[in-house]
């Protein structure tokens, strides 16, 4: 969706302002927000694409004026409310007012290392040949879906060239909607910077990973 998360090429946000010797967390609430978000993810009630979509559905003005962990919390609360894990009344009260949803198992402390070590690989077995090969010229499709997508606006309708084939991976546009993994071939595509920005760039090229359905063979 064309939300505030799709930032590539926007202007006016000011300097980057790196912090020397930056700590992993800046406040205790950030530690707990990070951990609660990960731990709730491990309950398996949503996948990473649904989590990203929940954050992207934040009002754009709110997204751009919130800190990163504030955005995470907003997404987490939205997911929990939608799935009936908690109610607004419970969130306001800070305590449980009704029985827990059945069948939700908390990740135990003893399982943390193994769960992190497993991660969530997205590569799947190929069931069809890849349509493109390294060196092939491609063009990204012009799409503006209402749902989550991983094709940023600045890369839509652009000519590029396949530089690598990553195998078959879960398709986020489908996965985010609960419509299944629908795995597709995933390619690394290189775009010349002037194809994207004309003369107004200091980049030479941009590489991005594109699922097969984002791509078409350029016309003559």
């Amino acid at each position: 969706m064309n939300g505030a998360q799709d930032l590539g090429g926007m202007m006016g946000f000011g300097p980057i302002d790196p912090e020397a010797d930056e700590p992993p967390f800046h406040a205790d609430w950030e530690r707990r927000a990070f951990a609660v978000t990960l731990a709730m993810g491990f309950t398996g009630r949503w996948n990473i694409d649904m989590a990203r979509q929940a954050r992207e559905r934040l009002d754009p003005a709110r997204y751009l004026s919130s800190s990163y962990y504030e955005i995470w919390l907003e997404g987490l609360v939205r997911l929990m409310l939608e799935r009936g894990l908690v109610t607004r009344e419970e969130l306001a009260a800070g305590r449980s007012l009704a029985p827990a949803l059945e069948g939700v198992a908390a990740l135990p402390a003893a399982g943390v290392a193994a769960a992190l070590g497993r991660g969530g690989p997205t590569k799947r077995a190929a069931t069809s040949p890849a349509r493109f090969a390294p060196g092939d010229a491609v063009r990204t499709r012009v799409i503006h879906p209402q749902h989550h997508t991983r094709l940023p606006r600045y890369l839509r309708g652009k000519a590029g060239r396949i530089v690598a084939v990553h195998g078959v991976h879960v398709f986020p546009d489908s996965s985010a909607q609960g419509a299944g993994e629908s795995p597709q071939w995933l390619y690394c595509v290189r775009f010349e910077a002037d194809e994207l920005w004309g003369p107004d760039t200091t980049a030479s090229s941009i590489c991005a990973d594109c699922w097969e359905s984002y791509l078409e063979t350029p016309g003559p």
């Binding site: 967390f25 406040a27 205790d28 609430w29 530690r31 707990r32 927000a33 990070f34 951990a35 609660v36 990960l38 731990a39 709730m40 309950t43 919390l73 609360v77 894990l85 908690v86 419970e90 969130l91 009260a93 800070g94 305590r95 449980s96 827990a100 949803l101 939700v104 908390a106 990740l107 135990p108 402390a109 399982g111 943390v112 290392a113 992190l116």
Partner: peptide, 26 residues
């Protein structure tokens, strides 16, 4: 801090998260 503490308390009461697992993640 108050908001996140309330959220954590709620989720622990519900049995959805184990506070020791949160410590291990951090």
């Amino acid at each position: 801090e108050l908001r996140v503490r309330a959220l954590e308390t709620l989720l622990v009461e519900k049995g959805y998260v184990d506070p020791a697992a949160l410590d291990a993640l951090v």
